[in-house]
Design a protein around this nucleic acid. Structure first.
Lengths: 232, 232
DNA sequence: ACAAAAGTGTTAGGCCTACACCCATGA
DNA sequence: TCATGGGTGTAGGCCTAACACTTTTGT
C-alpha cells in the first residue's frame, strides 16, 4: 500500500469499523425492511443493508443514526445496536468489523432519503439474497425483534401514534408469525394498562367503528419501575 | 505520527478494536468476576476487565476466547458478545472500540492463567472502581446475565456438572438478587424436565443427604424445538 | 343478501404462590 | 438438645385459552 500525506498510519493493522442498519417498517399487514441497491463493486447491483463507515468523532450508534437519517430522513426513531459481525473475510476488499443495529420507523414518516433512488422497502417474504453477510445480519435482527417485542413495547414505534386494536394485533402477528385470539388480545392489552383511548368513542359510533388508542409511555415507565414485567 | 516500514497505513483514520471479557464465576454463595490489575499506564494499578486487541486473523469472539484462555486457562466455556462500546474518549490514548463479552466459567476448573499474579476474583459487592469505562461494561454485563438466565439455562455453566437443588437455587438467588420459596423452586425446576438425577439416591441415604442432579442438555434442546419457553 | 370487521363475557383448566411438618445430622 | 438443612404436598387465587353472537357497513 502506498504511503502519502493523506494516509493514517498505525503500528498494528486495524480493521475498518462500520455501522449497518436493519430498518423495520410496518404497512398494516407486513413487516418491511429498507434495502439499498449497491451502485459499486463489490456486489454491484445487489441489495444490501444501509450502513457506512464510522467517523472518528462519533460512536457507532451515532453513525447508525446518521445513516438512518441519510436513508430515510428520520431523526428520532428507536435505534439499537444488537451484534457485531467480524468474520475475517466478510468484506472481500479488506477487514471490516460492523456493528449491526436495528431501527423501527413509521412508514408514514419516511419521506425517502437522499439515496432514495436506489432504496426500496421489501416485505420479509420477498427479500432477495443480500450483499456481504447481510443475510445473516438480517436474520439475527429479525430474531432480536421477535424476542424484544415480547418484553418491551417497541412495537408502538412501528405504528402511527393513534391506532386501533386490530392494527396492533396485526403488528404482533406479523412480527411473531402467530395468530392470537382477538378477544384475548384485547383483554391482555387493556389489562396491561399501557394504552389510553385516543379519543372517547363518539356517541354516534357504530359497532363498526373501532376505538382508537395511543401508547401511554408515562404509564409504562411508572409500571415498570414498580417491578412489572411485560410479557406475551 | 512517524511513518516507517513497521506501520500500517489507511486512507481514513481507524479505531483500534478490542475484545473485553466479563468473566463470571460462582463460589456457591456469591457471583464473582475476574479482574486484572493494570501494570501500565493509563490507569496503572487500577483493576480492569481482561481483554486485548483483536488480531487480523480472528473474529472478536475468537479474540475474547483467546483472552479467556490466557486469563483462566479455560478453552470451552460459554462466551457471548453482548455490546460494543465506542465512546470517542473511552480510552485516553487513542480511539478504541471494544466489543464486550461475558463468559461463564466453573471456578473449580480455573487453574489460574498466565497472568494470574495480577488477576483476582471479586464478589459483586466488593468491586472497586475500574479502569476506562469498564464499570459501565460490567454493569451492563450483569444486567444481561440477569435477563438471560431467566430464559436460557446458562446458569449450569457456572455450577459443577453435578449439583444439588439448593446449590442451583443459591445460584439463581445470587444472580437475580431475590429469594425463592424452596419447595416452589424444586417443583418448578423438576417440572421443566431439564434436570436428571445424577445418581439414584443410595438406599442408605439419610434425609439429610441431598439429591444430586445434572443438566440434561439433550432434553432441553428437544423441548425447545417443540416450542417450549423457559421462564422464571 | 352476504361477507367482513368490531364490540363484548364466561368458563374451565393450569400455573403460581404461600405455607408446615418431619427427620437426620453436626455442633 | 438445639439449630440447620433437606425432603415432601396442598389449597386458593390468578391468569390463560378457548369459545359465539350481534351489529354495522360496504359490495
Amino acid at each position: 500500500m502506498e504511503e502519502n500525506k493523506e494516509m493514517y498510519s498505525y503500528r498494528y493493522p486495524r480493521p475498518a469499523v462500520t455501522a449497518d442498519c436493519v430498518i423495520f417498517g410496518f404497512d398494516g399487514v407486513d413487516i418491511k425492511v429498507l434495502l439499498i441497491q449497491r451502485g459499486i463493486e463489490p456486489f454491484k447491483g445487489k441489495w444490501a443493508l444501509p450502513g457506512g463507515f464510522m467517523n472518528m468523532n462519533e460512536t457507532v450508534e451515532e453513525c447508525a443514526k446518521r445513516e438512518l437519517k441519510e436513508e430515510t430522513g428520520l431523526t428520532n426513531a428507536s435505534v439499537e445496536q444488537f451484534h457485531s459481525f467480524s468474520d475475517v473475510n466478510r468484506d472481500p476488499r479488506e477487514r471490516v468489523v460492523t456493528v449491526a443495529h436495528y431501527a423501527l420507523v413509521r412508514l408514514a414518516d419516511v419521506k425517502g432519503g437522499d439515496d432514495a433512488a436506489s432504496a426500496r422497502w421489501f416485505s420479509m417474504n420477498e427479500i432477495p439474497s443480500l450483499a456481504f453477510d447481510h443475510d445473516r445480519i438480517l436474520r439475527m435482527a429479525v430474531n432480536r425483534l421477535k424476542e424484544r417485542i415480547c418484553f418491551e413495547p417497541i412495537g408502538f414505534e412501528l405504528l402511527p401514534q393513534v391506532f386501533t386494536m386490530t392494527e396492533l394485533q396485526n403488528l404482533y402477528e406479523a412480527i411473531l408469525e402467530v395468530k392470537f385470539d382477538r378477544r384475548n388480545f384485547y383483554n391482555k392489552m387493556l389489562k396491561l394498562g399501557i394504552l389510553t383511548e385516543a379519543e372517547p368513542r363518539p356517541a354516534n359510533a357504530s359497532r363498526r367503528t373501532p376505538s382508537k388508542y395511543r401508547f401511554n409511555a408515562e404509564k409504562y415507565t411508572e409500571l415498570k419501575q414498580k417491578g412489572f414485567r411485560l410479557e406475551f
